[in-house]
Design a protein around this nucleic acid. Structure first.
Lengths: 167, 167
DNA sequence: GTAACTGCAAAGAATTTGCAGTCGC
DNA sequence: GCGACTGCAAATTCTTTGCAGTTAC
């Protein structure tokens, strides 16, 4: 299993030229609205939901409307640039599909999403599908869990106790 | 990998006494509405969506209202008796959680859902979670695929060809 | 100029809730 | 009688759409 290093995981679109070209190639205009929405989603590493996306978008172009956000997201999904995720019990969120990994582990305490890749599981999936008489066209693997070492581990909790030494 | 035999997969509640008792034990009344909704969902093997559920419920007790269906489903989910699934691109559907299997293969052609169990994958999931520092509390595995041999394979298509023998 | 894009407000779909009445124990 | 359950209609939430105006090429 490989965890995806967060630092180098998204191929941070060199400017937006890639997306722009990509859009154009697909009949999109690549207007400001589209570029801003695309850049924000593609550059986000944390699976923001719609509210959070709008907040981030607003810091760049406050005039982009809700409808435009939804419409652009739909376009980008159609192009296969981004994906919409609906993890258990939380609002839909969006993330780049460019560096698509097979699996997501959702930290039920913090909401954090960790991507991972297991070729082993991927192999088994294909095997299962074919045993059942199917050709695999898609898959979704979500793990839900809580951190093993104490909840959350805030910085303030890390301080060593007064007299006894924490092991 | 084990496919779940559809014929013996649900332990078809011997009458509704089980559920009834179970409900009572959890502070539910076990009124007609609750019993009917519970029985219908628990006995269904095909992941019916809300409309379909209401249709089936109506054949038994036509007066059960939409609100009651939703409320009862929520109660049953809370008790861990049933599960709500939201497979890609389709309306939410409900199924028993009593014979919970880890995996679902969704036939994108027919909409059919096939349950399976892979201890191998389950083991890997636990391994991955713990490598990432998490204790697994839940998981979801969905495979999407299309049938390999022609669509659907209806009974009428199974007939042997006129002159050559089908292997 | 045309077709794609946009904002706004209204429409829709799915689900929940407030309320007053009903039912089981 | 009390609290859980119910139907109904209204409310919420999330997302899409109609329309008229704007923009890019």
């Amino acid at each position: 299993m490989r965890q995806i290093s967060r630092s180098r995981c998204r191929e941070n679109l060199k400017s937006l030229r890639d997306v722009d070209a990509w859009c154009k190639a697909h009949g999109l205009r690549g207007t400001e609205g589209q570029r801003v929405v695309a850049k924000i989603v593609l550059d986000s590493r944390d699976y923001p939901d719609l509210d959070e996306l709008r907040r981030r978008i607003a810091t760049v172009s406050p005039r982009i409307s809700l409808a435009t956000v939804y419409r652009t997201l739909r376009l980008l999904i159609g192009l296969g640039l981004i994906e919409r995720h609906t993890f258990q019990e939380r609002p839909a969120c969006y993330a780049s599909a460019l560096d698509k990994r097979q699996g997501h582990l959702i930290d039920t305490a913090s909401g954090r999403v960790i991507e991972f890749q297991s070729d082993e599981i991927e192999r088994l999936e294909g095997e299962i599908a074919s045993l059942l008489g199917y050709r695999l066209t898609g898959h979704k693997l979500e793990l839900y869990g809580e951190p093993i070492r104490a909840p959350a581990l805030h910085r303030s909790q890390v301080r060593a106790p007064r007299s006894s030494r924490s092991r």
